[in-house]
Structures are given as C-alpha cells and as structure tokens.
Design a binder for these strands. Structure first.
Lengths: 346, 346
DNA sequence: GGTAAGCCTTGAAATGTTTCACTCACCTGT
DNA sequence: ACAGGTGAGTGAAACATTTCAAGGCTTACC
C-alpha cells in the first residue's frame, strides 16, 4: 500500500495536497479541524495520506506551536523502583492530557542532571518534574526563572518560587520509630546517608525527635551512616552493626529507604540473625519488593503513584492556568507493619 | 544577567544577531563552526547570547536537519529491573554518540506500545530499540519498512529484516536444569508464562530438552504456568506448588525470570519450607535483587548492560553506515550459583 | 597600483506545519 | 435583483535554524 520513500524523503502535507488535488491549508484542516472540511474532500485527503504513508512531522508542529507536546521527569535513581512508580503516576496524568512523558535518570550525578535539563529546555518541553540531586543547585533556579513550569518531586521547596510534592519525611521518621518503641525496643539504629540528601536528614530528625520525646537515652540511638541508598550499602551497614559489642548492639534498625533495608535484611539472615527476633527492621517507601522479601518488610509507605499524579497536575496547572499559584503538596506517610517487626519484646 | 523574556518570547538567533551587530548567519557559525569566525566577532556574539539567555530551539534544528538527535528504547516492563539495566547500557552508548535517549514503557500492553511507536516516528527519532510485546506485530514490520533504524532487544528476529540482540534462551534453560540435575534433583518444576512470550517458550524448551537427554521421566518435569512474570505470580505459583501431593511435589524450581523466583522464594519461606533444602530455586536474568534476596538466588545471568550497548551500536550502524547489514547478536548466558541451590541431594 | 588569494561575513533559501484573513460560489429572504 | 450570509477552500506568512553561494575587505605580491 503506502509507498514511503518514493523519492527518498518522507511525504509532507504538500505532497498530500498535491496528490489529493487540494491546497495544503485544506490538508491541515483535515488534520486539525476535520469538521470544517466537506466529507468528500476529507475522504479524498485521507486516502492520499494513507497512500503516501504520510506522517506528521512533530518538529515542524513544535516549531510553529512554540512548545512541544511533552512533559519530562528527571529521576534520581533508576535502580530504585520507588521512582518508577512515581513516573508511572506522572505518565498516567500526562496520558490523560495527551502529552508524552520523557523519563530521564540522573543517577544521583549532578552533571548528568544538568545535561538532561539542558536538553529538555532545548526541546521546549511544556514542563519539568524532577527529583533533584541537590534542591539548591543553581541550574534548578535557572529553570524556574526562565518561566518553565517546574515541580520538585519528593522534596519540599524551601522558597515559594515553584511547586513541590512530597511526603512529610519528618513525620515518616517519627512513625517508624514510634512503631519500634511500641514493639518494646530499647536500642535502635538509624541506617542511612549521605546526609547531603535532605530526605535522609529529615527522616533521621523525626526518628530522633520521637526518641527524645519518649525519654530514651541518647546513646541508645545509633546512627549508621551509608555512602548511598542501595542494597549493597545496606549489607555493609549490616556488617558494621554485627561488629558492635553486644551491649551496644541495637535490636532494631530503621533504614532511610527500602533498598538499604533489604540489604540489611539479607546480611542479617546470612549472618544467622533471626528477623525480627534478633533484629527488627523498618524500611521506607514501601516498594513492591518490600512485601516480596523473604521476611516481608515493615515499611513507611509513600503514596508513590499519587505523588506522581499530583506533581503532573501541578505542572499542567502552571503550564495552562495564568492564575497559577505555587503549591507545596505534602502527603502523610503511613506505616505498613509486616513480619520484619513482628514481635513485641520483653 | 540574562533577561529571559524581555518581550515574552524566548530570544532567537535573530535577536542575538541584532544585539551583537552581525548577521544571523554569523551567529549560526559561532554555534556550529566556531573556527571560521574571527575571535573578536565570536566573543561579541557569545556575550550577546549570554546576555539574552539564548537557548537553541531544538525543533527548528530538527526541522532543518530532517531528523532528531535522539534514540528511543521501548521497554516491556518498567517494573522489572532487568530492563533498566539494558536501558542503562543503551544510554551509555547513546551518550558517547552525543544522542539523547527517550525511554518508554509499554507495560506489556500492545496498544501502549503502538502509541509510543507512533509518537516516536512522528518525532523522527534516529532509531528505535524495542523489547516488543509481540515480535510479529504488524506495527513493528511497519517501522522497519519505513526505513527507520530498528533493533529488537532480548528477542532474536526470525526473518532477517532487522537487527536483534538477545541471549540464547534455549541454552539458558539448558544450563539452569543441568545445574539442578547436577545437584541431584529428580523432580523439577518450570515456573513461567504466559507462553505467548517467546522467552518463556524457549527457556522451557531448553529445560525440557536437557531433562529428556538425561533420560529423566517426563512426568517428573512439572510445568506451572503463570499469567505474568511478576513476583505476585511467583507467590501464587508457590501456593500451587505447595498444594501438590508430596509424591509429586518437585524439589526444585526453575523460574522464567528473577521476579517469579523471588515471589516463589518468599512464599516458600513464609510457608516454612527451607530453601534450598526443601526447595531449590533458579531464576533468570540475575538482576541485582537476586543477589540481595534473603536466600541469595541462583540465576542465569544475561549480560544486561552489554545487551543494551550492543543494541545501540547496531542501531547507530544502521543509521549511519550505508553498507549496514542486519545482524543477529546472540550472547551466551552463564549460571551464577548462589545459596538457593546450595545443597546436593542424596 | 593593480590583482590574486584568503579570510570573514552576509543574505536568501529551505525545512513542514499551522493559522488567518480572504475569496468564491451558492443560497435566502425581501 | 440584490444585500447579506454561509460554507468550503485557498495562499501567504510565520516559526527558528542551518547551509551555501556570493561578496567585501585586507593583505601580500608583482
């Protein structure tokens, strides 16, 4: 049927117009306002398009329109399923608005993030969603300053110069440790780092706050810092934990995310510790793998998809609504108790 | 400094030219062939660009060039880390060629895949890499027919009308079951499905071939079909496995991918089975979570990143080399033995 | 002083689409 | 018969960039 490269180059509206014996304005009308074209002409044009194998050239549309029909999400860590679920939520909303979503992955590297942003700005995407490596990096402010709709995901913005969507991380830290106190633990560890990551700092703060409020001794709250938020680092934290003198060894660990928790869990099991009896573990994010772990993991749930959907809603509002006001959407995390903290001590 | 929206719209080369007092051809030369422009002029133009906050409009470049500066990868299942590692490999190669990579996710749904492909063709991407839902779907042939560089990933093409990159799945099935036979198992299960997925069929075939070649009884090879390749389906397969009369219950399971294996592992542990003593488990893909499972998972490794890099190399060759010939790159899988098959029976 | 050779710079054309002010033919009601 | 209206289609302009033939200026050389 369609004879794509009759003369090497893809057919344009002009070719279609010639083939159908109409002006190219009419072809454009068939594409964009079919109702203003008579049925007979419309059909003739449509047949010509099919015969030639015509495909709209998106760059030309964009050039004319001044903006692309796409949103972009720059995620922090492609290896962490959490960000995928967020992306999934964004895509749902983008789909509903008939927009494409470009997903990029900075892999926690500032220069990669900057490169992605550069490209996206050149592409004139309608809006940018990002979970940034560093929320105060100047290239982010630059985006907002340029007037590109911009939403920070999983991180609340300090200034009010753009929207953001996140879970209350301090509260998340609180409920994790409250749960452990509830279970009778008297010595707990916080596993997470580096502290350049805001989420880590806030979850730690919430955890520590509760610890103090319950009148527990400062020395019974151990901070095990990690280099990154990966399962590998979780295992290494497990080794350090096992190396502590038994008097000082915590009976429970609150990990800053589920990957750390899964790594820690793995090390514990390998080392012959029983979970939760010898070591209780709480993670954060409640990724699908948390429930699927060999000892199902207690975790602080974030509404991952909803985070994404809300972020997309905000960026679209900024893009289309002239009266848009920046908004900081904060969600409430919830504890999902599973076997990894299953027993009450003492 | 830069005054973005002096009059509402982003500054163009024309504005830069006016500000620097040169023609717009010269501005373009500064951007694309800096060496032909005298140092003084170049500097003047660059200062003007900085002052105006000029940003190249990618759509206009593309329109002129006739093609975008991007590759695309449509992955089958965003929830499976395997595809991420493949994407990572592709991105490495794309980066080296100074191309962007658009990552899309069909989520195993044909219509979503088709929609993504439509958009990508409209964007005039330089090449498309895809792990298809159905390798024989007509919309795939259509892409190749249009002359768009096209590579199938994780699936060997039957006809020779495009490149493909994959692991030898039949061999993968063979080595998994050879390993189990080696460990003394006399009754094994294959967990995986639906059989519309080619990978599943081939891994099963390899497994069955070896079983026969070793002269084992047909009835001691149990096929437990699943609806999808997820951890949830793995758990449900575990339930069915546990429900078998003990005379017929296999002592080992070979799962068509690691997600299934992790789900099965979780169910086994929950149900009080010891892994590997009561049930040995082999997965496929060797995703990072396999090693991080509470009982580290034996798995058939695919060279995930290399799969991606090779695919990108092929698509770039097709895009740039007029003498390109289609190539079916097949990789050899390797067994990675871990604790989940750790004991020898009998 | 004329000229050939470089080096820089210019201006116009081309890319594919959308929009919008127009025209043209035909109809309606007076 | 004619003003006014309507429905269908037209053609040129605009979007931002790149390319390329052509031209201007300087320099060096005869």
């Amino acid at each position: 049927m369609s004879q794509q490269s009759r003369n090497g180059r893809a057919p344009s509206v002009k070719d279609v117009a010639a083939a159908a014996g109409v002006s190219l304005g009419t072809v454009s009308n068939v594409l964009n306002r079919p109702s203003v074209v008579s049925a007979a002409t419309r059909e003739r044009v449509e047949r010509a398009m099919a015969e030639l194998g015509f495909i709209r050239n998106e760059s030309a549309r964009q050039l004319r329109a001044g903006t692309s029909r796409a949103l972009a999400y720059v995620m922090l860590d492609g290896g962490n399923p959490f960000f995928h679920d967020v992306a999934e939520g964004i895509e749902t909303a983008a789909e509903a608005a008939d927009l494409s979503l470009f997903v990029c992955n900075s892999n926690s590297r500032v220069e990669r993030e900057a490169k992605h942003l550069d490209r996206l700005v050149q592409q004139r995407v309608q809006g940018i969603l990002i979970t940034p490596v560093d929320p105060d990096a100047p290239h982010l402010a630059e985006i907002a300053r340029r007037g590109i709709p911009f939403v920070m995901v999983d991180r609340l913005s300090s200034g009010g110069d753009h929207c953001s969507v996140a879970v209350d991380d301090v509260l998340g830290g609180r409920i994790a440790v409250e749960h452990l106190l509830d279970r009778g633990h008297q010595r707990v560890a916080f596993v997470g780092g580096p502290s350049s990551i805001g989420q880590v700092r806030e979850r730690l703060q919430g955890a520590r706050d509760v610890w103090r409020e319950f009148g527990m001794a400062e020395e019974d709250f151990v901070h095990l810092p990690t280099e990154a938020m990966t399962a590998g680092e979780g295992r290494s934290a497990g080794e350090r934990l096992a190396g502590l003198p038994s008097r000082r060894r915590p009976t429970a660990a609150f990990c800053a995310n589920d990957l750390l928790a899964l790594g820690l869990l793995q090390h514990a099991v390998t080392a012959g510790l029983r979970v939760p009896d010898d070591l209780a573990i709480v993670g954060f994010d409640d990724i699908d793998f948390a429930a699927a772990a060999a000892v199902p993991l207690t975790s602080v749930r974030q509404p991952r998809q909803e985070l994404g959907r809300t972020a997309a809603r905000l960026v679209l509002d900024e893009a289309t609504n002239p009266d848009h006001v920046h908004e900081q959407a904060s969600f409430v995390p919830a504890l999902v108790a599973r076997a990894s903290t299953g027993t009450v001590r003492r």
